[in-house]
């Protein structure tokens, strides 16, 4: 039997534009999701430890194949404040999803068919990054959204005290600079698609801060810590600049 109640349903909204379907691996330690986006340039990794749920009960390993497109439509009703509960029996062809809107007390129940998802499991190697920089998540989202209005990709440059996001396109160029207090092993410069950064930054509501782990010519990591877990987005670099 499996039962988990989660109070940050907005997490679903943060990943729905990257992946349409995913297996949710349910274990006694918690729920994990790891999936590549359709264009194979990004990987989403989410870990929610059992302690972040009230309650959490999982007496055997279970993989629930869930359509995030459908789940988003269900969760969208109540917004970021919704409480989401997942329940499954021993034969998980279907699972129950219970959505509770805290503001109105309204409870909605669904029986959802588990999907058979052909999903490749990717091993993510341990990486030592040249720069690991933590900045306010709202500022990061503001910068990404603002620059993306006119431009397509962004060059990240980080020095001892500042991280600079600069971008250029047909209409001209723009840049944003933020102070940080993080350690760097040296200055770093790399280019990343703004469209993806805007997608990653939809996780802003989950955490006050976001951590950018950067190195040249390896996937960049954008990480949001959530209560008892994390949402990590890896993005393949542009090479041969």
């Amino acid at each position: 039997l499996f039962h988990a109640r989660f109070e940050q349903a907005g997490l679903v909204d943060a990943i729905k534009d990257l992946i349409q379907d995913s297996d949710f691996h349910c274990r006694d330690s918690g729920i994990a999701l790891r999936n590549m986006d359709n264009s194979q340039v990004a990987v989403v990794v989410i870990l929610l430890e059992a302690g972040g749920f009230l309650p959490y009960h999982c007496d055997r390993r279970l993989n629930l194949g869930i359509s995030l497109t459908s789940l988003t439509k269900i969760v969208h009703y109540a917004g970021d404040e919704a409480t989401l509960a997942l329940k499954a029996n021993d034969n998980p062809d279907t699972f129950n999803l219970v959505l509770e809107c805290l503001q109105t007390g309204c409870i909605i129940k669904y029986d959802i068919k588990s999907r058979d998802i052909d999903q490749e499991h990717l091993e993510i190697p341990k990486t030592d990054y040249a720069a690991t920089i933590t900045i306010p998540s709202a500022e990061f989202q503001r910068i990404c959204r603002n620059l993306s209005q006119l431009l397509e990709s962004v060059a990240n440059e980080a020095s001892e005290e500042r991280i600079k996001f600069s971008s250029s396109g047909d209409i001209g160029s723009g840049s944003a600079t933020l102070r940080h207090n993080s350690d760097l092993t040296g200055p770093i410069a790399l280019t990343i698609s703004l469209k993806y950064l805007v997608n990653f930054s939809k996780a802003t509501a989950l955490s006050y801060s976001v951590t950018l782990s950067l190195s040249s010519e390896v996937p960049q990591l954008v990480e949001y810590k959530v209560e008892s877990g994390f949402a990590r987005f890896y993005f393949a670099p542009q090479i041969g600049e």
Binding site: Q40, L122, V218, F235
Partner: peptide, 14 residues
């Protein structure tokens, strides 16, 4: 301008 790589060039599938 660089070329966008894919994530499978860095992370191995199993």
């Amino acid at each position: 301008e660089g070329t966008q790589s894919t994530i499978t060039q860095f992370f191995e599938g199993s």
